[in-house]
Nucleic acid binder design. Structure first.
Lengths: 108, 108
DNA sequence: TTTATATACCTTGTAAAACAAGATAGTGAA
DNA sequence: TTCACTATCTTGTTTTACAAGGTATATAAA
């Protein structure tokens, strides 16, 4: 029952949500997740995930120069990505409901 | 982004909660999870999980006869199991808060 | 110049978990 | 005897998060 197991299938949906708000690059997404209260999410998690989602057609990317370091790879949602975000949100709400029902009913 | 990935690290905590309420056997736990709104959880998931938790000292088990089939293996929480349940509950609340923050902030 | 720091991306290998699919067995009813 | 329900367990597969490392750019201090 480690912390990282509970993140599986969650991080990708959260990244979609972050990208949906405004185009974003990987390094920044890691920081944003931290601000939202997640434990530091490794770049070894984020980059492969973004590449997978691009392969699946959920996001597109553009490289742009930065004033403070190497080029950034900005991601945006495709129509399929937006749809995937909606589905993630629904699945999350369902999970939330079920887990809270178990915890509430069974813990006293 | 499959459904099953999102269950990782969640099911074990829910089983602890179910066992905490009242001693219970694997086959019944699968049904109970269904009642709480989870998609059918495979027995190939539950039994190895219970064995692992017993190996880790979170639960103990007793075999008892059933009037309607083969013997049942009833599980109860140990002190460590109760502690693990509390920790799971806290981790879940933290995750819930973070994910909802991302979805709320980023989805319009 | 050299060094350090922050930025930014990517790769490899590992561990953990859920599940499909099947095996095994007891019970009771048609 | 055949079927359905109950009940446990095993094997092999797939997916995922991460640790640990590598590469490279920009800025500023030493």
């Amino acid at each position: 029952m480690s912390h990282t197991q509970m993140m599986k299938g969650i991080i990708d949906g959260c990244l979609l949500a972050i990208i949906d708000g405004k185009e974003c690059y990987g390094y920044e997404m890691a920081e944003r997740l931290g601000e939202y209260g997640f434990d530091a999410v490794s770049e070894g998690t984020i980059y492969p995930l973004l590449m997978r989602m691009q392969r699946e057609g959920l996001v597109t990317s553009v490289r742009r120069a930065s004033t403070a370091g190497p080029q950034r790879k900005y991601y945006s949602l495709t129509k399929e990505g937006k749809q995937a975000l909606v589905e993630f949100s629904l699945r999350w709400q369902q999970l939330e409901k079920s887990v809270n029902a178990v915890l509430k009913k069974e813990m006293e």
